[in-house]
Amino acid sequence: MACRVFLVSFLLLLAASPAISTNSEGAVLRALKARLSDPSNVLQSWDASLVNPCTWFHVTCDAHNRVIRLDLGNSNVSGPLAPELGHLQDLQYLELYGNNFEGRIPEELGNLKSLISMDLYGNRLEGGIPKSFAKLKSLRFLRLNNNKLSGSIPRELVTLSNLKIFDVSNNDLCGTIPIDGPFATFPLQSFDNNSRLNGPELQGLVPYDFGC
């Protein structure tokens, strides 16, 4: 009898786990919403009374009701990025381009192990590119252009073997452009209009961060 009760309890917990997951993901997205100014009410459907965020506009889920895409491109929102976004473990596409996001890019975004594409271009983000992005081994597209980013390009990013597109043009980056790994294939236009950025390291010289 005790074994039967345990089995029933376990099955109920297992059945509830997707709801628990989506509820926590809803909390993550509400944490982002709480930080933002939203004059066009694009986040109006992000209703805290709903357990499942998969019914919200600009949010896409997989068959297991886990958030795999967040698309707020050109949505006229402003404010800082929430570090809580790093808890969206199944997120594949983070599309936040063409807004007025400001402040630093959270290091916690490096925890998005399933991420394929991150588009943060056309905002007012500042500070450095997080070294934690080197953990995004599934990443294929990283567009950070047209922001106010500074500092050097983390050499840790040369380990991102799947990275096909990398654009940091129109920022205030400094130092040298890596040439290892995927950086051997990126066109120089990807680095345009960074007045303190030098390179690439063509002569096998030891990398030097000019002015960083």
Rank of each mutant, 00 (worst) to 15 (best):
V8K: 06
E25A: 03
A63M: 13
S75F: 02
V77S: 06
A31G: 13
R4K: 10
R4C: 04
N74E: 15
C61E: 07
L70T: 04
A16H: 11
L12E: 04
R69C: 12
L12F: 02
C3R: 09
L70D: 03
A34H: 08
L36D: 10
L14Q: 07
I20E: 11
G73P: 00
A31L: 00
Q44V: 09
S9M: 05
S21L: 11
A48R: 13
R66A: 13
D38P: 09
P39R: 08
W56R: 12
N76H: 09
R66N: 08
V77C: 07
N41A: 14
P18M: 02
F57N: 14
R30L: 15
A2D: 11
S37I: 08
H64E: 11
T22Y: 13
V59N: 11
V51A: 15
R35W: 08
S49P: 04
T60Y: 09
I68F: 12
L32M: 03
D71M: 04
R35A: 07
S21T: 15
L36W: 05
A34L: 05
F57L: 15
A48Y: 07
C3E: 13
C3H: 09
S40D: 15
P18E: 05
R30G: 01
P53A: 10
F10N: 01
R69Y: 09
C61A: 14
A2T: 06
F10H: 02
W56S: 02
S78Q: 03
A34G: 04
S40H: 14
C3G: 04
N52M: 06
A63W: 08
D47M: 12
V5Q: 10
V42P: 00
